[in-house]
Design a binder for these strands. Sequence first.
DNA 1: CCTATTTCCTACTAAGTCAATCGGAAATCC
DNA 2: GGATTTCCGATTGACTTAGTAGGAAATAGG
Lengths: 148, 148
Amino acid sequence: MKISTKGRYAVVVMLDLALHNDGEYVKVKDIADRQNISGKYLEQIIAILHKSGYVRSVRGAKGGYRLSDSPSKFTVGMILRQTEGSIAPVACLESDVNECEKCDTCETLAVWKELSDAINNVVDNVTIADLVERHEQNLLSGADNYVI
Amino acid sequence: MKISTKGRYAVVVMLDLALHNDGEYVKVKDIADRQNISGKYLEQIIAILHKSGYVRSVRGAKGGYRLSDSPSKFTVGMILRQTEGSIAPVACLESDVNECEKCDTCETLAVWKELSDAINNVVDNVTIADLVERHEQNLLSGADNYVI
DNA sequence: CCTATTTCCTACTAAGTCAATCGGAAATCC
DNA sequence: GGATTTCCGATTGACTTAGTAGGAAATAGG
């Protein structure tokens, strides 16, 4: 039941981009340094975000990344689904192929469905903008060296 | 974010034991046959339930397993925690050692905490007795070959 | 045009987890 | 004593995770 580093880092990347949204493109190395994550690994994760259309990029010197839209348009759920593949707690609940032949008479499935709904309800109701706001609240309330 | 077969099978085993609670001890092979799961694999899973004190056993011929207490005493959460190890979505939230040095200033951690709470809220509020009841409801309402 | 920078792309890997399988010892019933 | 059944530990093949490694292509500035 763990969220992988891929998913967690992806959220961190999106938040980092939202917080450093000053005209300039943000390069992977800067995010990696700020968040203390392997730059090469981050490249792969950002590639997913790029393919998903969540970030825009410019190559070459002075290049980098920025969010493709307002932070309020991106939920944590969207980001996790792209990077984790699926966040359903059991494969039976995955949207595409429901392969389990006893699905329609499966007793415990109802529990996993409830669980899935609860999970989605959380991650689909937190946006990157919410995280930015919380971050600013935290800055105001005294903690002066807040990291993401 | 998947629950492993270990956790899912463990819930199925507990429910199966609750449904076949007629004086006799239930043997692993019967559960395995009913649920179409490898008996040898089930042995390992039941061993965890045994160590956790959730089932009682008798060895030898006519031996087997039964629940150690009323079905209402066992929540899905209890069972999953024993078999999955932990159901926290990130390691930082694990009860014992909180090793991440930036935990107290971690922005995204709040989201994972919310997620964890939502997950716990579901699994800690469904007991094996609830599943038995639902099963009986389903039997009444016409589906005649209901499996677990 | 040259060079430094930065994204982009693909392949590889070491370690760990998952879902079993296998073989046999110990206990219990008839 | 023999059949049954739990108990215990070792092994395995496939897969996933969390990276590393190397280099091609694009761009800015000089």
